[in-house]
């Protein structure tokens, strides 16, 4: 039909109004996206396909983009080591003396620890496998603090695995795709990590807020903390293993206890992903599942009722008397345990 014959052909909507309607529709779509998002549920299916696809594409692109930075860092490092070799040598010699003393002390403590463990019969945890990964992208804004590592499901990385640098805990994996893992940093506003103060064993929750120094919330015990105390993971809740180094306590400008992370001074290009799911992986699950429960002898309720009923006086059996309808008492039967792994 030609435009001139169209009854709506003369109708003209001002562009400003149409643009306003488009804006409102876009805001509604954005709000719907917000409401439907299921970030931070630590479920594989919640980390949607779109996020996995973006991570999988971003990892190689980020790797290429980060290359000039790496080269620059290498060149600066080379110049630094060339010009400051004498000073660094003196510093390293001092450090070596201190470390030698600490190493001697560590040998003594390890020996004592092993003897005490042997006396108490404590079973030590087996070592946990690690995967080394390179960081290829880094978001550090106040609303999201993530890093993208270039190792993913092909190396067995799973959601929830802790991530460490050479000095301490960095965060944990919240998204995995092929060739990429997204790491939620301890500084992210959504990050909450159970920690303990090394000196007093006091428990707290390390809560990120987008700044460089996350705060310590829900501190327990009396006078639990001093500036400079070491902070370690507590292992509470089974999300992280116990004893991973986190940082040192400082008093923040806002008067709250905060933590200077050990990883602050690190180079941020390499991390180790610890293949730790929960404490269940530290035990022999197959042996646990094969355990047979002992048979339980139960009483037959019919037998108990019949025994409890008063018996009538004995009478001479008449030929017309009907035989008793009650079945004879059956012998007690053992309860059969449910097969392993079924009916939980």
């Amino acid at each position: 039909m030609p435009l001139r014959q169209n009854p709506l052909g003369e109708v003209k909507v001002p562009l400003a109004w149409t643009a306003a309607v488009a804006l409102i529709v876009a805001v509604i779509i954005g709000a719907a996206m917000l409401l439907s998002d299921r970030r931070e549920t630590f479920q594989t299916e919640a980390y949607g396909t779109a996020r996995q696809a973006v991570d999988a594409v971003s990892a190689p692109v980020g790797g290429v983009v980060a290359k000039p930075g790496e080269w620059t860092g290498d060149i600066l490092g080379w110049f630094g080591s060339y010009f400051f070799t004498a000073g660094e040598n003196r510093r390293l010699k001092k450090e070596m003396v201190l470390l030698q003393q600490q190493a001697d002390e560590a040998v003594r403590l390890r020996d004592e620890n092993e003897r005490l463990r042997a006396m108490l019969g404590v079973r030590t945890d087996p070592p946990i496998d690690m995967v080394t990964a390179r960081i290829v992208a880094d978001s550090r804004g106040p609303l999201a603090n993530y890093r993208l590592a270039n190792v993913g499901s092909e190396k067995g990385v799973m959601i929830g695995f802790p991530v460490l640098s050479e000095r301490g805990l960095v965060g944990r994996v919240v998204g995995v795709s092929r060739g990429a893992s997204k790491v939620l940093l301890l500084t992210d506003a959504a990050s909450k990590t159970p920690v303990m103060i090394d000196r007093t064993n006091a428990r707290a929750i390390l809560t990120g807020d987008g700044g460089p120094n996350p705060k310590l919330d829900y501190l327990r015990s009396r006078d639990p903390i001093r500036a400079g105390d070491r902070v370690l993971t507590s292992g509470d809740g089974g999300v992280l293993p116990r004893g991973l180094p986190v940082g040192r306590v400082v008093k923040g400008l806002d008067g709250r206890w905060r933590v200077v992370l050990d990883t602050d001074s690190d180079s941020i290009d390499w991390v180790r992903i610890m293949k730790f799911r929960d404490y269940a992986q530290l035990v022999d699950r197959k042996a646990l599942e094969q355990t047979q429960l002992p048979p339980v002898i139960t009483e037959n309720p019919d037998d108990r009722i019949l025994k409890a009923r008063p018996t009538p006086p004995a009478a001479a059996p008449s030929p017309s008397a009907t035989p008793p309808t009650a079945s004879p008492a059956s012998p007690p039967r053992p309860a059969t345990p449910a097969p392993a792994g079924g009916g939980r």
Binding site: V27, G30, L34, R51, V54, S139, L143, A144
Partner: peptide, 13 residues
């Protein structure tokens, strides 16, 4: 949101 890792719709809105 997808690249930085925020909630989907955060920066859109």
């Amino acid at each position: 949101d997808l690249f930085w890792g925020g909630a989907l719709g955060l920066w859109g809105v």
